[in-house]
């Protein structure tokens, strides 16, 4: 196994996913198998290769510093599951 159960739990925590015990084991297996396949990349010497993080071949796009009418607040809140006044409501942050 490439991944321990602890690692699976740690990653799930970082990603804010709650996994049941069965799911943890399934992901441990599947992710380990996938990572195993990814090991193939180690064959390549990339010491002097620059990474490619963007596909864009085009120039940089700017926006001028002009402020304009924002979205109407009703629309901004229309999909909110819970709100108080015009604020989004969440369970208290500091526990």
């Amino acid at each position: 196994m490439r991944l321990t159960l602890e690692q699976v739990r740690h990653v799930a925590g970082l990603a804010r996913l709650k996994l049941g015990p069965e799911e943890e084991q399934r992901y441990q297996q599947q992710l380990s198998a996938i990572l195993e396949a990814m090991e193939k990349l180690r064959e390549l010497d990339t010491e002097s290769v620059e990474p490619t993080s963007h596909s864009t071949l085009s120039g940089f796009l700017w926006r001028e510093d002009l402020s304009r009418q924002s979205l109407e607040v009703e629309k901004a809140l229309a999909n909110a599951p819970e709100k108080v006044g015009t604020a989004f409501s969440v369970p208290k942050i500091i526990e």
Binding site: V8, V11, L14, L31, I34, L35, L41, L44, V49, P51
Partner: peptide, 25 residues
């Protein structure tokens, strides 16, 4: 899960950065 792992501390170079380099190739 896979993506979070590939970016996480200690694995970024081995996985994410490595992949970006191979992408160049």
């Amino acid at each position: 899960m896979l993506g979070t792992y590939a970016l996480s501390a200690g694995y970024y170079e081995a996985y994410y950065l490595k992949a970006q380099k191979v992408r160049t190739l």
